[in-house]
Amino acid sequence: MEAARPLDPSRPVEIYDTTQSALEKAILGASARQQAITQNLANVDTPGYQRVDVDFHKTLRDAMASGAGLQSATFSPRRDASAQVRPDGSTVDADVEASAQARNGLEYETLVQVSKARIDIIEAAMGR
């Protein structure tokens, strides 16, 4: 994370700051994860299916740590090899997917709410 800069009157004000673009990227990540979980639930009865997941937290953490900027962060689904294998070769557990989905849905909602609150502040400053 870059350190907070002191206000410099000669610099243009950034309406869309790092936090806002990080929030947007996180929303995209949560949406990608939702797609992966949906895919797993759709294949709950497919023998031999290997579950997929999107670890967007790690992607964002790495992008922020590397200093390369958040724009470079892309969320790609990966096969999850660590999951418990069922007798039919599938690694989907409906309960695990359901709780992951509930958690991801709440996280998405939080991100959207915070994002909207920040936009509302900017709008208030604009006198709307």
Binding site: I27, A30, S31, Q34, I37, T38, L41, A42, V44, A94, E97, A98, Q101, A102, G105, Y108, E109, V112, Q113, K116
Partner: peptide, 18 residues
Amino acid sequence: ANVTAMQTTKAMFARTLD
């Protein structure tokens, strides 16, 4: 399970529209 997944996706989408 898939109907529930669909409802969650719909709820997420509705949030974005907010």
